[in-house]
């Protein structure tokens, strides 16, 4: 059991923290892209597309992220696909985030009042034009606060990637602890670091939500 917490340990934890941010960004971008497709598929005029996307969402939401990570890492290895911890973690988180963001965004798209669709239809806009010029710009404003709020969940959930050996903040804490054996001090540092990443986002999300109150007053009168 060796020594005290020193600058090298902190550097190592800092590197882990950077990977936490990196993995979060990968998950957000990957999950955002796939999630956008899911959101559109969930409200598709084609029943089969709606059904397939709904099944996907239900499957992912009904499975613990931990299990998805294990499946991604060990499952793919078992069928002969050797993937790195980063690839496995990125892919698993992307699938996970896509299911949740897809549902959040579907809700936001559907919360644009139906008369807005009708007004756009009445002006002879095509479905794509209605979506891109009328509905999505309004849905994005509605979606921003919950999306930023969900980013907090993503950051915290990347800690699970430590189980497949990906050295992000949590895993780097475990490694440092293995040599120092000062669990309380080290995990306190880890906790504070996660908090420092998440809290600003939470605040930002709340501020956005308050600001959203304005500028959307053209809802249909009862």
């Amino acid at each position: 059991m060796g020594g005290h917490l020193n600058i090298n340990h902190l550097m190592f934890l800092g590197q882990g923290a950077l990977w936490t941010i990196g993995l979060s960004v990968i998950a957000l971008i990957g999950g955002g892209i796939v999630g956008f497709v899911i959101a559109l598929a969930r409200i598709s005029p084609l029943k089969s597309v709606r059904l397939a996307s709904a099944t996907y969402v239900q499957l992912v939401q009904g499975t613990p992220l931990l299990v998805i990570l294990f499946l991604g890492y060990f499952g793919l290895a078992a069928i002969g696909l050797k993937v790195s911890p980063l690839t496995a973690a990125s892919a698993s988180l992307t699938l996970y985030v896509a299911a949740y963001l897809g549902e959040i965004w579907r809700g936001c798209i559907q919360s644009v009042p139906k008369p807005q669709w009708e007004a756009a239809e009445g002006l002879a806009l095509s479905r794509t034009q209605r979506m891109s010029k009328v509905i999505l710009p309004q849905a994005i404003r509605i979606a921003t606060p919950p999306t930023v709020g969900f980013m907090v969940q993503i950051i915290k959930n990347t800690s699970l990637a430590s189980v497949v050996g990906f050295v992000e903040l949590m895993r780097s804490g475990q490694i440092v602890n293995n040599s120092l054996f000062e669990p309380f001090a080290i995990y306190a540092i880890i906790a504070v670091t996660y908090f420092a990443m998440c809290y600003p986002l939470s605040l930002f999300s709340q501020r956005l939500e308050r600001r959203m109150g304005r500028g959307r007053s053209n809802l249909a009168p009862a």
């Binding site: 807005q116 009708e118 007004a119 309004q138 053209n218």
Partner: peptide, 13 residues
């Protein structure tokens, strides 16, 4: 055909 609704339905953005 032009149609005008009870709830105006202008695009707020």
């Amino acid at each position: 055909v032009g149609i005008v609704f009870q709830s105006y339905n202008l695009f707020p953005h």
